[in-house]
Write a protein that binds this DNA or RNA. Sequence first.
DNA 1: TAGAATTTGCAACATTATAACATTAGCAAA
DNA 2: TTTGCTAATGTTATAATGTTGCAAATTCTA
Lengths: 163, 163
Amino acid sequence: MSPSALPYRPHNHDACVAQALTEARTICQQHNARLTPTRERVLELIWQSHKPLGAYDVLAVLAADGHNAAPPTVYRALDFLQQHGLVHRIASLNAFVGCTHTDKKHHGLFLICRCCGNVLELTAPGVSDAVQNAAADEAFQPDNMTIEVSGTCPGCTSDTTHD
Amino acid sequence: MSPSALPYRPHNHDACVAQALTEARTICQQHNARLTPTRERVLELIWQSHKPLGAYDVLAVLAADGHNAAPPTVYRALDFLQQHGLVHRIASLNAFVGCTHTDKKHHGLFLICRCCGNVLELTAPGVSDAVQNAAADEAFQPDNMTIEVSGTCPGCTSDTTHD
DNA sequence: TAGAATTTGCAACATTATAACATTAGCAAA
DNA sequence: TTTGCTAATGTTATAATGTTGCAAATTCTA
């Protein structure tokens, strides 16, 4: 998905997966980190799915690939990808999505459609600031924030058929 | 914990648990809902712990009580308590805390101390509004939001000993 | 009190995640 | 080119969290 595309708008998804992988390679080079075949494949699978993918979903595809993988393989790859900001974990779904803002330092805000399951990641600096202020009022030093909003996306508000 | 107390300040915790239970009884009466012994006991346990309590932690205490409970017992009680706004689930911890704002309609914001494990719930209307605006910009209709901030609480910033 | 609805008990199971330890791959210095 | 180091992966087992389905008991209501 290119940065300007929305998950529920038609787009050339193969191209956006390819772009995400290219960016990931660049980022890993910059971080001096190794985007090994397993890690790259996991990232690809997460990107291919527009919707959050569970660790065991990834595992199932790897198995179908012929890769005799066990859970630690997947969780390790996911940890790596998270550490380098390439995927995010959605705590309320126990699932993972590709990061669509690898370029910017950000705290993600996720809009999760209950109806179609798509997730849109926003950077929403206004929200970050509001949270920072609320924390500061309590003399609390934040270092990580989880902001997940579930509801209905524009596609599902208007349509009767859903992805 | 009385509404004005902070979890990391010393206070008469027995009294605040008792107050929470009294409020819960009132709320359930208003909702025409039954705060059965099991449900009340689960609520009490969650309140007695200042820190988020996992479902299986609750289960263990029930077992120690002599109550031969199985996981569904606990999860059902927790579902009930959540539905009536008496407890919140912290998605990033898979754990539950007593709601400290049962009086107001609110979307909770949780400050979770990585160091001592205490959680402070805020109402933070500014944050809610900022999230609403961000969602509205995307034509997204929110119906539930999870906002969890982990970091360091004032007690742990200054102290060397922690609860 | 009889019937309906809610709540609980209980057993099995499903899903998500981690621990512990052995093995292999990549890479640099002797 | 071997040796030794570190990072990465394989493998097995298990822990932790959460759900389904159905029967029994309790509570409400007419």
